[in-house]
Simulated scan of single mutants.
Amino acid sequence: MNSEDDFGITEDKQGQSLAVTAAALFLLNLLALPGLAFLILAGLWLKVGPDTPPLARQHLKQATYVSFWGGLLIVGLSAAILLAGGLQSAWTWVVLILYFTCIHSTLILLGMIALIKAMNGQIWRYPLIGPTVDAP
Rank of each mutant, 00 (worst) to 15 (best):
A114V: 08
P34N: 04
K61I: 04
E11T: 14
A114R: 01
L33F: 15
V94G: 00
P136D: 13
S89I: 02
G35E: 06
H59C: 01
P34W: 05
L77D: 00
L39I: 13
D51F: 06
I81G: 07
L25I: 11
A37C: 03
A37Y: 01
A19K: 05
I9T: 01
Q14T: 12
W93R: 09
L55V: 05
A19Q: 03
I116W: 12
P50F: 11
G130F: 04
K61T: 11
V66P: 00
A63W: 02
G71R: 06
W91K: 04
M112V: 14
C102N: 08
I113K: 09
S78I: 15
L18F: 02
Q62I: 01
F7T: 06
L27Q: 04
Q16I: 05
A56S: 05
A84M: 08
T10W: 06
Q58L: 08
T132F: 07
A19C: 07
G15H: 03
G130H: 05
A118C: 06
S67F: 00
A24T: 09
T64V: 04
Y126W: 09
L128N: 14
G70V: 03
N29C: 02
M119Q: 07
G130K: 06
I123D: 15
L18T: 10
G71M: 04
V133T: 11
I74M: 14
P54Q: 13
A23F: 05
L36N: 00
Y65Q: 01
L128S: 14
A84N: 03
K13I: 13
P50W: 02
V48N: 07
V94C: 07
L77H: 11
L107F: 11
Y99W: 15
Q62K: 00
L77W: 11
V94T: 14
A32D: 00
Y99S: 15
L128E: 11
G130Q: 03
L72E: 06
F68L: 12
L60N: 04
Y126P: 04
L110N: 02
K61M: 13
G70M: 02
F26A: 00
G35D: 03
L96Y: 13
G71T: 07
A32P: 03
T132L: 12
V94N: 05
Q88D: 14
S105R: 08
V94S: 04
